[in-house]
Every structure is written in structure tokens, then in C-alpha cells.
């Protein structure tokens, strides 16, 4: 009885921490990126809690709805946030199992994220603006080309979850895979995890509209993808859009963070601290790319995505090799 109660309390605690991380922390990491970029450019930059202040300011303001828009435009910001948070509940963060995990949740994860993207695209088409239509067209095209990479990464992760024959029968889920990863997993499956991490990093940059695929700070509408699609949102709607984007970035980063440094500590709090450090380090990586690279020409993006796809495919093949699927062939 006592043991069960303790287990329940612990689970509850873990869930609360994950919800806290997922809901409260995301804007901070955006703030970190902005700050780091400013420092790298030799400016002082805003404090890292600036995004919170921005969100608070936006949510106090009124809204302007275009006469062209209808319900789609009104619901889209809500859908963006809801889908990001739902996806975040499927990814295990900070050393815990995810609140939602079931066999097959990898696919649901990918499609829940796609839901938010679809909502933004539709909302931007609803405004009837040519610029927003342009952003929507680009987003839809590049996202479609990135999907195969995403799924191959998921296949590779799923295989990893089944790699150890002693744990055979675990569910095909993100938690099932990531919860059983240890640092030693890198010693066994490092050759597969290396390209996987690269591919996932490229995907993070694309899905979250970062340099080199998109520039979050550009001022020219013709060069935007994500920013141009939320041009017409204002007030709380804009706050929701920005917040949803921040949550999505955190969700992706925590997935990658868990893969590159899968160590569990004895104490939960150590895990939480490591988690924050991991995400911080990944934010530094994202910033490094933004500082070191310019935005790519649009027609070069498919080539890069194809490269990421090859890396993901390589990771699947190497994962199968490391699992010994090809051993025992007549040599």
C-alpha cells in the first residue's frame, strides 16, 4: 500500500514537472537564443525573460480581424498551441517517461505536429494576403519534403527500442525507446545515432523556421516563411502563435537532447537540471548556426532536405547493421 502510494506520488510529481517544463519554460529558451545572437553580434541584447514580457504585453492588447477571415483564422492559434503541447506530452523530458505513451505514438507525434503546421497554413490563406499565401506555399512544400526524413528517424528510433533482445516486446513508442537509452547505448549504436542526430538537427532548424531555412528576424516579407504567415495575427492570437512556436522548438530540442545525452541521474532534480542544460546547449547550437550561416536560397532547400533524408536512411541501415540483422549471411 505504502509502496503504491509512493509510486503514485512520484508519478504525479514527474507529470507536474514535465507539465511545468513544457508550459512555462519554452519562451526562456527563445530568450536565450535571442540573447546569444545579440552577444555574438557585439550587442547587449534583451534579457532572457524578454519573451515572457512580450507575451504578456501581447495578451493584454486588443485584436484586429481582417474582413476576409472567418473561423479558421480564429481557431488556428489555439490549434497551434494545442498541437504543440499535445506533441510535447508524447516526448519524455527530463529523464521521465512521457505522460502519454502507447505503442504507435511515434506516428501520432509526427502527425500532431503536422496539425499545428496545417493550422498556420490555413490561417494564412484565410487572410487572402499574397505575402501570406507565399509563406503558406513554401511552408507546405518544404514540410512535405521533410516528412520522409522525420519518419525514417522515427523508424530508426523505433528499431533502437527493439534492439535489445532482452527487452523485446517493448512498445513502439518514443518513451519505450528513449526511456531505455543509456550512455552505453551510444557505445553500441553510436554509428547509427550519429547521422540520426544530424538529420534531426536539420529537421529542428526546418520545422522551427530557423536559419538557414528561414530567418526569424528578417524584415523583408519576400524572404520569410514562418513570420510572414503570422503577419495578420495580433494581440492574444499573436501571443499564442509565438508561444506555440516556442513550445514546438522545446519539444524538438528535448527529443534531440534525450538522444544525444540519454543519461539518467539518481535524483529527479539532477535530471531536471541536466535537461535545462541540454536544451541550453542545443539552443547554443541553433544560435551558432544562425550566427555562422546566412539564409539559403529557396531553391537550395530541397537539396539540404535530401541530404538530411540520406542521413536518416543511413541511420536506419546502420541501426539494422548494428542490430546484427545482416550478420550470418554466407560470406
Amino acid at each position: 500500500m505504502m509502496a503504491e502510494f509512493a509510486w503514485l506520488a512520484e508519478t504525479l510529481m514527474q507529470r507536474t514537472i514535465q507539465m511545468f517544463i513544457l508550459i512555462v519554460l519554452p519562451p526562456m529558451f527563445i530568450g536565450i537564443i535571442v540573447k546569444l545572437k545579440a552577444v555574438a553580434a557585439g550587442r547587449k541584447g534583451p534579457p532572457i525573460w524578454q519573451p515572457y514580457l512580450d507575451l504578456a504585453r501581447l495578451s493584454r492588447k486588443g485584436v484586429v480581424y481582417s474582413t476576409a477571415t472567418g473561423q479558421v483564422f480564429r481557431w488556428a492559434p489555439l490549434l497551434v498551441v494545442a498541437s504543440s503541447i499535445t506533441a510535447g506530452l508524447i516526448v519524455p523530458m527530463a529523464g521521465f517517461t512521457a505522460p502519454i505513451h502507447f505503442s504507435g505514438d511515434l506516428i501520432v507525434f509526427a502527425y500532431v505536429l503536422a496539425l499545428g503546421r496545417l493550422a498556420i497554413i490555413l490561417a494564412s490563406l484565410d487572410t487572402g494576403s499574397a505575402f501570406e499565401g507565399m509563406g503558406a506555399s513554401r511552408e507546405a512544400s518544404f514540410a512535405a519534403l521533410a516528412e520522409p526524413t522525420m519518419f525514417l528517424i522515427l523508424v530508426s528510433l523505433g528499431l533502437l527500442g527493439h534492439a535489445d533482445p532482452h527487452k523485446f516486446g517493448v512498445e513502439w513508442s518514443l518513451t519505450g525507446t528513449l526511456a531505455q537509452m543509456e550512455m552505453i547505448t551510444w557505445a553500441h549504436y553510436g554509428p547509427a545515432l550519429l547521422p540520426l542526430s544530424f538529420a534531426l538537427f536539420v529537421l529542428i532548424l526546418l520545422e522551427n523556421s530557423r536559419v538557414p531555412f528561414d530567418d526569424p528576424t528578417t524584415h523583408l516579407e519576400l524572404t520569410m516563411i514562418h513570420e510572414v504567415m503570422i503577419l495578420d495575427h495580433s494581440g492574444p492570437d499573436l501571443a499564442l502563435m509565438e508561444y506555440g512556436a516556442a513550445v514546438k522548438l522545446l519539444v524538438f530540442q528535448s527529443l534531440l537532447g534525450r538522444i544525444i545525452f540519454p543519461h539518467h541521474f539518481e535524483s529527479q532534480w539532477a535530471d531536471v537540471v541536466t535537461f535545462v542544460i541540454k536544451i541550453g546547449v542545443l539552443s547554443v547550437c541553433v544560435t551558432a548556426v544562425e550566427v555562422g550561416m546566412a539564409r539559403l536560397k529557396m531553391n537550395r532547400i530541397p537539396g539540404i532536405l535530401l541530404g538530411a533524408f540520406i542521413l536518416a536512411a543511413l541511420s536506419v541501415v546502420v541501426m539494422l547493421v548494428e542490430m546484427g540483422e545482416f550478420r550470418g549471411l554466407p560470406s
Partner: peptide, 13 residues
């Protein structure tokens, strides 16, 4: 939030 704020309508920007 919107109950307390103003809701305007206009052309798309």
C-alpha cells in the same frame, strides 16, 4: 482576454 480588449475589424494588412 478579448472581453476586456477591443476587437477591431479591417482589411488584411
Amino acid at each position: 482576454r478579448l472581453n476586456a480588449a477591443t476587437i477591431d475589424s479591417g482589411l488584411t494588412w
